[in-house]
C-alpha cells in the first residue's frame, strides 16, 4: 500500500518540484558557484579568473542536467568550457599572463560606485524574483517525451528554423570578422634566403667558410693558426675566444721557421735566422691592429690575405 501511495507522490515530485537529491546537488553546487564568481571578481591574475569561470560553467552544466536539460548540459561543457574558455586562455597567453590590473582610478570613486551598482542590481533582481508568484511547476516530462534532444530538435528545426539559419550566418560572419580584425598587412618586403645572401655579398663578407686552425701548420691544435697559400699564418683561423684570452700559440717560434721557409732555406742556417730576425725587427712597429698581451712579433702585415682579414674577424666576432 505504501508503494502504491508513494508512486504518485514521487511522480508529482518529479514533475515540478526538485527531489531531495537535486536539492543536495543544488546546495553543494550553489556555494561553489558563488565563490568561484567572487573569485572572478577578486582574482588578481587573469588566469585564475579564467579558471574560476570554468568552474562556474562546469557546475552550471551539472545543474542543466539535473533540470532535465541534458542537451544543454552537454553543449555547455563542449561549447563554453571546451571552446570559449580555451579561447580565453589562448588570448591570455598571447596578451601576457602577468598582466595584472592597475589600481589607479581614472574616474574618481568608480570602485565604490561600481560596487554599489552591483549590490543594487542584486537587490533589485532578488526582489523581483522574491515578489513574483510562479505557477506550480509543470516539469518537462511531457515536453521531453522521447528525449530531450529530440524535443529541442523539433523546436529548432520547426518553429525556429529561420532563427537557426540567421545564427549560422552570424557564426560565419563572426569568423570572417575575427580573421579580418587579426589580419596584419606586411609592411616590409619578405626577406628570404636569396635576399639574405645578396645582402651578405654586398656587405663584403667572406663568402667561403673560414679556415680551420692548424691547416698546413706543423701542429693541428686549436691554438695554432693555419697557414695560407703563401705560407703566412692566418690570424682569424684561431677561434676568437682563444685570441681574446691570449691563449693562441706563441707565434715567435713558428714565425722564425716560416721566415726560413720563405727565404728559401728549407734546411735552415745561421744566415737565414739572422735575416728572419731583421725582418722581424723591421716589421714589428707596424704590425697589426690587435697586439696580444705578450707583445708577440707579428709575422706578416702586408700579406695578400690581409685585406680579407678584417671583415672575417668582424664576422667571427
Amino acid at each position: 500500500m505504501s508503494a502504491l501511495a508513494a508512486g504518485p507522490v514521487l511522480a508529482t515530485l518529479h514533475a515540478g518540484q526538485a527531489s531531495t537529491g537535486e536539492a543536495i546537488l543544488f546546495w553543494v553546487l550553489a556555494p561553489i558557484m558563488v565563490l568561484a564568481a567572487l573569485g572572478l571578481l577578486l582574482a588578481r591574475k587573469a588566469v585564475h579568473a579564467a579558471l574560476a569561470v570554468i568552474l562556474v560553467m562546469i557546475c552550471l552544466a551539472f545543474m542543466y542536467v539535473a533540470q532535465d536539460a541534458v542537451f544543454l548540459g552537454v553543449v555547455q561543457v563542449v561549447v563554453y568550457t571546451g571552446a570559449i574558455m580555451m579561447l580565453f586562455l589562448f588570448v591570455l597567453m598571447l596578451v601576457g599572463v602577468d598582466q595584472s590590473d592597475s589600481l589607479v582610478e581614472t574616474i574618481r570613486g568608480q570602485r565604490w560606485i561600481g560596487l554599489l551598482a552591483g549590490i543594487g542590481l542584486a537587490v533589485v533582481l532578488a526582489g523581483v524574483v522574491g515578489r513574483a508568484t510562479f505557477p506550480p511547476a509543470t516539469g518537462l516530462d511531457s515536453a521531453n517525451d522521447p528525449s530531450n534532444p529530440e524535443g529541442l530538435a523539433r523546436l529548432v528545426f520547426g518553429s525556429y528554423v529561420f532563427a537557426f539559419e540567421a545564427v549560422g550566418a552570424l557564426l560565419v560572419t563572426a569568423a570572417l570578422g575575427a580573421l579580418v580584425l587579426t589580419h596584419r598587412r606586411r609592411l616590409t618586403p619578405r626577406v628570404g634566403q636569396r635576399e639574405l645572401a645578396d645582402a651578405r655579398v654586398k656587405a663584403g663578407a667572406v663568402l667561403t667558410p673560414l679556415p680551420a686552425p692548424g691547416v698546413y701548420a706543423r701542429h693541428n691544435a686549436m691554438d695554432v693558426p693555419a697557414l695560407g697559400p703563401d705560407g703566412r699564418p692566418l690570424e682569424h683561423s684561431v677561434p676568437r675566444v682563444l685570441r681574446v684570452r691570449g691563449q693562441q700559440a706563441d707565434e715567435r717560434e713558428y714565425a722564425a721557421r716560416i721566415e726560413r721557409v720563405l727565404a728559401g732555406e728549407w734546411a735552415g742556417g745561421e744566415g737565414s735566422t739572422a735575416l728572419a730576425t731583421t725582418t722581424e725587427a723591421v716589421e714589428t712597429p707596424g704590425s697589426d691592429e690587435n697586439p696580444p698581451p705578450h707583445a708577440r712579433p707579428d709575422v706578416g702585415a702586408p700579406v695578400p690575405g690581409a685585406a680579407t682579414d678584417k671583415p672575417a674577424q668582424e664576422e667571427q666576432g
Partner: peptide
C-alpha cells in the same frame, strides 16, 4: 542563484580594468 551570478558578473564588468576579465 541566477540573479546572484548575474549581478556578480555585472560587478566584474564595472570594476575590473583588464579587458579579458
Amino acid at each position: 542563484l541566477s540573479a546572484i551570478l548575474f549581478s556578480l558578473g555585472a560587478t566584474t564588468v564595472l570594476l575590473r580594468r583588464n579587458a579579458i576579465i
